[in-house]
Amino acid sequence: MDDRVFLIAGASTGIGAATARQAAEAGYRVVLAARSVDKLETLADETGGLVVQTDVGDYAQVEALARRTLEQLGRIDVVFANAGVGHPRGFEAGDPEDAKQMVITNVFGIYATIRATAAALRESKGHLVITSSIAGRRALKGSLYSATKFAVTGMAEAARQDFNGTGVRTTLISPGMVETPGFSHELQDVLTADDIARAVMFAVAQPPHVDLNEILVRPTAQES
């Protein structure tokens, strides 16, 4: 597996960073993409990864990410479309411009990542992994964030159908409550980023004829 390439959009913290560490441990060459270069460089020191500053809301930057990966590493085997941001609940809460940017990042950013890497994934018969949320399966009161994750859940199935017959596999990861810096949960024992990263690595480790389309992961104590 020494030459296989694992590209992560949204790699700077949390689930993306944890997945980068586990992918590197599994023998992948990792590509680390996010807006925060300083965090990526620290992660690159741990993983040996290629750092590419990327705003997934700007298609030209995502296209440049795919091009640079192919130029320097020659292939793309796994794409983890993980970039995403949150927003306060309530349609009168928060800043409308922040809400707009969330929609661009969470929805257009996934589309842009798929589009820019699709040809490389078909070439390698690779694997597309997308982060959604349990909030993309059940609506949350006043949550535009939840609506973006519904869109992501639908996009993952649309991508699976589009790739059907090419050998490319598609997996949607839908976490429940995950430990997040600066955010409190009602449960004490929530999921960690490493828990979700293990689910990602489990999906990509399946044999080529197995397409694990969705993994829903909740803390044991989470009721809904």
Rank of each mutant, 00 (worst) to 15 (best):
G182F: 07
G109A: 11
P181D: 13
D194H: 10
G109V: 03
I196A: 05
G90V: 02
T117N: 12
A120R: 02
K125P: 03
T148A: 03
D98C: 06
A93P: 09
L121A: 05
D189R: 11
A116H: 04
V217N: 07
S174G: 05
Q161R: 10
T220S: 10
R138P: 01
M201E: 09
T113E: 03
A159R: 02
A135P: 00
G109I: 05
T170P: 00
A120K: 02
Q188R: 10
A116W: 01
Y111M: 13
R122I: 07
P96W: 14
G109D: 00
R138A: 08
V107G: 01
F150D: 00
F108G: 04
I215V: 13
T180F: 00
E157D: 14
A205Y: 08
Y145E: 09
P181G: 15
D98Y: 06
F91D: 13
H87S: 14
L172K: 09
Q161V: 14
Q206N: 14
F150A: 02
V200C: 06
A120M: 05
A112I: 03
E123R: 10
E214I: 13
A93Q: 14
P181T: 15
A119M: 11
D211Q: 06
A120P: 06
S143L: 02
K100V: 11
L172N: 15
H127F: 09
G142W: 02
P208R: 13
L144T: 12
A83F: 08
G126A: 03
A221L: 12
G90P: 05
L216D: 13
T117M: 07
Q101T: 13
L216Y: 03
G109H: 04
G165T: 12
A197W: 02
A139F: 03
R160C: 10
D95R: 09
K149F: 01
R89W: 12
Q188S: 08
A119E: 15
F183N: 06
K125R: 14
A135L: 12
K100A: 14
H127T: 06
F183Y: 13
D95I: 03
Y111I: 13
P175V: 05
L128V: 06
F91Y: 14
A203G: 10
D195T: 02
